[in-house]
Nucleic acid binder design. Structure first.
Lengths: 131, 131
DNA sequence: CAGTATCTACGAAACAAATAGTAATTCAAG
DNA sequence: CTTGAATTACTATTTGTTTCGTAGATACTG
């Protein structure tokens, strides 16, 4: 089958699986299934299907080990994080990242510590650019 | 029909419509349709269906004006922005907003100006907390 | 090598999202 | 009133997502 282009974003379940694979670096159907919370109780074959779809969409590649496949992300998590943020920014924040952060720091739940970390990150980036 | 509880997030098209309603404050099917880009060419009845669904999900209310309905968001945009950010943060950033911002400022496309704005926002928030 | 475990591939069922057509209603204007 | 344009309510179609069962392959175990 010809692989279709233009798969941008992961679906809900695909993201759930990718998070596990990113944490493990790679894994089999069994490995992923073992990482799911017990209350998830997903059938083995369902997990296998999801991974096959992820491979078809080229979010992972697979190699053989014994009788099973080992799946590994083709896309680094930070790359996907950035892609998701860009998507959210465009769709809900008029493509203005600053207004996204504005909303974030409006959150009263946000700890002083988190705020401090955020400022440190921004400062470091500003220094590196000018220096 | 009994309204189901627990509608959290908007679908793609629902968000497209809500963005228009947030900008207009309120509007009819026709109003929304007029705001869509011309290449969108969505049937009138499709737009009406989407708005009816939004009402059913309680993202908007409607009142009658003449023979048509006027739809108005029940949810402020900034509230929904925060909800979306929380969702993304949980699903993709281990619920750590600082790491979300970290990814954002890693983006080379991000302008110096945007970075400055972000820092100003954080600074202001930090000052207000301690002051 | 027979039996069992486990695995993959495929198909399909169940559900949700997006779009649009049809029928019925409403209102305004001749 | 009757007609016609615009509107709503409902239904249907198509497509994508999520889940799982069945069948066949593969490897291990005695």
């Amino acid at each position: 089958m010809k692989p279709k282009r233009k798969y941008e974003l992961l679906t809900e379940v695909e993201l759930e699986f990718m998070n596990i694979l990113w944490a493990l670096d790679e894994g089999t159907v069994r490995d992923v299934l073992d990482q799911l919370p017990s209350e998830r109780s997903l059938a083995y074959t369902s997990a296998a299907t999801i991974l096959r779809i992820l491979e078809q969409k080229e979010f992972v590649t697979s190699r053989n080990r014994g009788k099973s496949h080992v799946y590994k992300p083709t896309l680094a998590k930070d790359v996907y994080q950035m892609r998701s943020l860009k998507d959210l920014s465009v769709k809900l924040f008029d493509d203005a990242p600053a207004s996204l952060v504005a909303r974030l720091v409006d959150d009263n739940e946000l700890s002083e510590e988190a705020l401090g970390q955020i400022r440190a990150l921004v400062d470091r980036r500003l220094k590196n650019d000018t220096g």
